[in-house]
Design a protein around this nucleic acid. Sequence first.
DNA 1: CGCGGTCTTGACGGGTGTCAATTGTTGTGG
DNA 2: CCACAACAATTGACACCCGTCAAGACCGCG
Lengths: 247, 247
Amino acid sequence: MTTPRPVLRFARQHNLDNHACRLSSLCLPFTLCSETLEKFGVVAKRNAPLRKRDALYLQGMPFKSLYVIHSGSLKQITTTDNREEQVTSFFLPGEIVGLDAIGDQRYSGNAIALETTTVFELPFDRLEEVSCHSPELRNYLFQCMSKELQNERLLMHLLLRKTSDVRLATFFVAMSLRFRRRGYSPYCFNLAMSRGDIGSYLGLAVETVSRLLGRFQQQGLITSRGREFHIHDLETLTRLADSNGRC
Amino acid sequence: MTTPRPVLRFARQHNLDNHACRLSSLCLPFTLCSETLEKFGVVAKRNAPLRKRDALYLQGMPFKSLYVIHSGSLKQITTTDNREEQVTSFFLPGEIVGLDAIGDQRYSGNAIALETTTVFELPFDRLEEVSCHSPELRNYLFQCMSKELQNERLLMHLLLRKTSDVRLATFFVAMSLRFRRRGYSPYCFNLAMSRGDIGSYLGLAVETVSRLLGRFQQQGLITSRGREFHIHDLETLTRLADSNGRC
DNA sequence: CGCGGTCTTGACGGGTGTCAATTGTTGTGG
DNA sequence: CCACAACAATTGACACCCGTCAAGACCGCG
């Protein structure tokens, strides 16, 4: 038979030589003083683009670098002992990938490109070097991780006791925020992930996601054509996300 | 009427003078070289004990210090815009409290003592100073946060799609592990939190928790008398926690 | 002893996962 | 360029888990 679709092209892309590149074009979630940004930039290398379904890293690989998404998007999938696959995160442009790998020095899942995606690589040993002399950078990293930890904790614990519609509404509000923060329209965006990915991320069955999308559309909250989403009533969507869930 | 039970004694305890104290007696989740431990110890101050229901800090208070539990236990409760209260974490001896506050420089919930509890205070500005000259300490902090982030992410996303029995089994297995790591028996321990706290943490109704405890007991997996738990069959409990949930 | 809070147990209904069938979309090869 | 296969998304029917409400038991504490 024909060679199976090469899901992973990690080796290939890893052999390419990278060129140093400024990060000034990245709208990072926090503001950095230009000096710190500079130092950050010195460390960053631009990698060759990933194509859809390529892996940036694989679960269990030794941790070497953090990455910042330049364009495109990633999902992180963790496989449990049980052979269950679980989407644990989505990453959009400007967001830092791999923070959860520092702890045990291994990546905690497969990072898969959802579309053509380019990233900057931040070798962690270089980061550590630089952070010796730059308190700003050090604090920046601390803040990134702490914020993510806080978000994750609160969001997940909230979602645990909420109905599917609240979960999905929360998802859209969060996505809208992330796009707004990047300077894009918070009302109209493409989500490269599949319904199945969204379901896995939110702990819902694909069918439920699909049904809810239909209902939201019927209620005039959003319209979805394929993977393009328009948000018409962000306010009630937000109210729904903040609501008790079980009413 | 009599003065209402003083739930919060933060001010009182904060006015007491603290004395410096070694952390060597703490079984931290990761091993530190003695030199780093020393430096850590220089920073630590021992605080006056908290009584049950006292708060170590309150949601929204400016972040100043991390804390390490010496004895006792804490829960962290976050109140949403909606006046919903959500238990986001439990902290046992040796564990670090407050990591999720570094990001926005404010504590993200109320830290409430579940029993008489003593903590060491680690003023963050001192930590930052010391971490300038100690790569070990810096890395240790990074690792703590990263590990917690990874745990939280995977655990929560897994729980999202699991049935109540799997959630509770997971909770017990995790607790058992945490006690074992501290050198205590993984088969017999006291959990100072109420059923309601456990339910909130796992996203389950109190009644469900109670029913499940009954079922587990009936199946010979555990026995529970009040807040004292004996684990009889950790293996099947683990298998249950790792199972698909919906079978 | 009696009160308030915590825990347990029962009955009921709605939300959501599972299974199954259909349609739409993407990508590959003739 | 079309045909076909593989995959993704939608829609419906049904069962069952679990949240809600309600009542009662247990416990600590004054």
